[in-house]
Write a protein that binds this DNA or RNA. Structure first.
Lengths: 108, 108
DNA sequence: TGCTCATACCTAGTAATACTAGGTATGACA
DNA sequence: TGTCATACCTAGTATTACTAGGTATGAGCA
């Protein structure tokens, strides 16, 4: 995947991942890698600042929990996060339809 | 359209626009606005630096031409530009399929 | 025990790029 | 003459994914 494609879309992907179930940072990376068949293989330096932004924005909340006998910082969606996710879905549909249309091979 | 969605996709959209026919900066903005049904309504400050980047990268070439009796800087694709556009199309398909899949409403 | 490794979290700084806010110039038209 | 849309441009800004570093833990092994 090229450099800048993800910009503006990562937070929606994280919210969608957390909608399925609460998760901690490292496991979100694994979820994204698996569910994208390897397209999104993100370094850790990407996920933690993004999670902090989401928490600052009031879209997710984190709690310290024991998972498999170890302390993890688990993030879960709050109401505003669900709302934001719905907006992102609509926005993505509009955006991706427009790009797909323009990139379609033009009639020669 | 939100702030950062376009990042990493604009150059492909410009190349695709120029594939149809050579065009000058201002007219590319109009093409994108029309062909996206208003989704891409970009300010001028977006297009000229992008065109200069594309020319620096050797993907397009510009010539000064008279269009409707006026001097215009007309950009057209060169060979490397066609190649880059094809790569961008493949990359977009992969990227958009992955995002669409992850954003799909999860089974409740 | 000591060593390595995967896991897990974090941050300061960097790079890339769309955008803002300003500028200039032209021709059409009232 | 004045205004407007068109047309091109650039310096600086904001955003955000990433790089490159750090720390800590538990499992497995020699």
């Amino acid at each position: 995947m090229s450099n800048q494609q993800l910009k503006g879309h990562l937070e929606a992907l994280i919210l969608a991942t957390l909608e399925i179930r609460p998760a901690y940072g490292y496991s979100i990376l694994e979820s994204l890698r698996t569910s994208s068949a390897g397209v999104f293989d993100l370094p850790e330096g990407t996920i933690y600042p993004a999670l902090h932004r989401l928490e600052d924005a009031g879209l997710v909340k984190s709690t310290h929990e024991m998972v498999d006998g170890r302390q993890r910082r688990v993030y879960h969606l709050v109401a505003a996060g669900y709302g934001s996710l719905e907006k992102s879905r609509k926005s993505w549909q509009e955006f991706s339809a427009a790009v797909t249309n323009i990139l379609a091979v033009n009639p020669a």
